[in-house]
Each structure stands twice: as structure tokens, then as C-alpha cells.
Nucleic acid binder design. Sequence first.
DNA 1: ATTATTGTGTTATACGCATAATACAACAAT
DNA 2: ATTGTTGTATTATGCGTATAACACAATAAT
Lengths: 131, 131
Amino acid sequence: MPWELDSDRPIFQQIIDKIQTDILSGRYAPGDKLPSVRELAMMAAVNPNTMQKALAELERAGLVYTQRTSGRFITEDTAMIELLKERKAKELIDTFLEGMQRIGYSAQDAADALKRKAAPAQIPDCSQADN
Amino acid sequence: MPWELDSDRPIFQQIIDKIQTDILSGRYAPGDKLPSVRELAMMAAVNPNTMQKALAELERAGLVYTQRTSGRFITEDTAMIELLKERKAKELIDTFLEGMQRIGYSAQDAADALKRKAAPAQIPDCSQADN
DNA sequence: ATTATTGTGTTATACGCATAATACAACAAT
DNA sequence: ATTGTTGTATTATGCGTATAACACAATAAT
């Protein structure tokens, strides 16, 4: 996977987002060792300095910690991970609702539009047709 | 309203988004005259050059047109506006679903989480409990 | 005709992001 | 002890964004 980085936003921020997401989803488990800065930079096709910048921020946020010469590891604070995950979900929901409302959809409209896309095959219920 | 511009993304892009949104929502109606470049720049607390750049892009996209010395106007192509509005909605839905799935939510989970926030009070139906 | 307003263009400056190319200290492995 | 890998820091360069400070042509208003 080529890490899907675009030029719309600062790369180091996209990297922060990507790694954070991999932690919140469990793709990186608590205590897991991260690849080295240089290795990650290779994987992301990015300058090591840029990767370093992103990792430094993740560390400042407490999602990873460093052992001086053996590498970086995912935090083992599962409570924090869970909390950040819920916070991220709320953030996505808010962004979605605000975006839809700004172009004229009510919250109901937004939920309905989403349902049509997210759950096209419904368990039979009292409604007649949904899409 | 201070236009709510942050430093996470290029300002001219945020302006494009803001004006486009105001057009799609009908806040700017087809045929409406836009304030002048300098005036808009004042309103957004932004350099006129930056505003000019954003307006030029909106014009390239066909959402506004220019009459050389009398000002800029919103396109009267309502079909185009409607199309862009639907496209924008789909984009928001996709972004939301992808974001949720990346942190471990299924499309169903995402739709449910949204419903709990968007429609806390439900019209009674055949289902039993929803939140 | 004069004036003011419109969009548009130019030049210079400053800042952040990203890369390239190194260098160094700390420690693990050998 | 030597070698390699780790995180980390430094300097230089290029690019895009944003601002400041202008200027000019076209035209509506007077």
C-alpha cells in the first residue's frame, strides 16, 4: 500500500492521521514496535525528517513512546486509545452533520441519505421501499 | 460572522469551500451579485489577492461569472448547482463512512452512531428500541 | 469629462512545508 | 572492541501560500 498521501494537506499531518487511525483501529496493537523512522519514511515514500516530525507529534500526544535506541512503541494505555477512538467518531459525526447542514440538509435528511448508502439491504420491516 | 478560517488548510481553498457551500445551500441565489473582491477580502479579513485567487477558481469551475467592471455573479445554471450539491453530499457520506471504517466501525455501526446523534427523538414505528 | 468602482496584474517579502545530505550519541549485536 | 541500528539535530534549497503595496484598463455614476 502506497500510504495514499495527497498534496491538499501537509504530509506530516496526514501521516499523523494515518498512524493514529491504525492505532485506534487496532491494526497497531498496544505495545507493538513501530518500524524505524527511516523504514517508515521508505514505506511512505517520504523524507525521514518529515516522518520524524509526525512521530514526534504522536509521541507528544501520548500515543507512542520512545526507548532511546531500540525504537518506538505503541502506548499500552488502552483506556486512552478507547477514549480517543470515541472522540474521533464523534468528530467524524459532527463534521459530517455540519457539512450536510451547510448545503441544506437537515440532520434527518443526512441520516436518511446515509442509510440509503450504508444499509442498502434492509431486514424486512414495516416500511415499503427504501431505495 | 468572522468566516471561520483556520490555518490547517490553505486559506484560498477554505474560501472556495465557503462560497461554494453558500451557493449550494441557496444562501447565494442564482444571479445574485457577489460583493467586490476588496469587499469580500475585508469581510474575510484576508488579502485581496487571496480572495481573487479563490474567486478565479470558482469562476473556472463555472459557479460564478464575471462582468468585466460591474462585478461577479452567481451562475444561473440551477441544474449544475443541483448536481454539485448531490455530488458534495455523496462526498461527505463517503468521507464519513471511510473515516468510521478506518477506526473499526462497520457501515451499520456508523449509521447507528449517527442516528443516535441526529435523531434522538424517533417517530414511533414497528421497531422496538433504537437507542 | 471627471470620478469612483470594478476586475486584474505585478513585484517583493515572509513563513511553513518538504526534501536532501549530513552528523552525532546511545545502545544492541557480534 | 567493532559494527550496525536507533532516535535526533543541523544546514541548505525549493516550492506554495499569504501578505503588502502598488499599478492599470474598463466602465458605471456623476
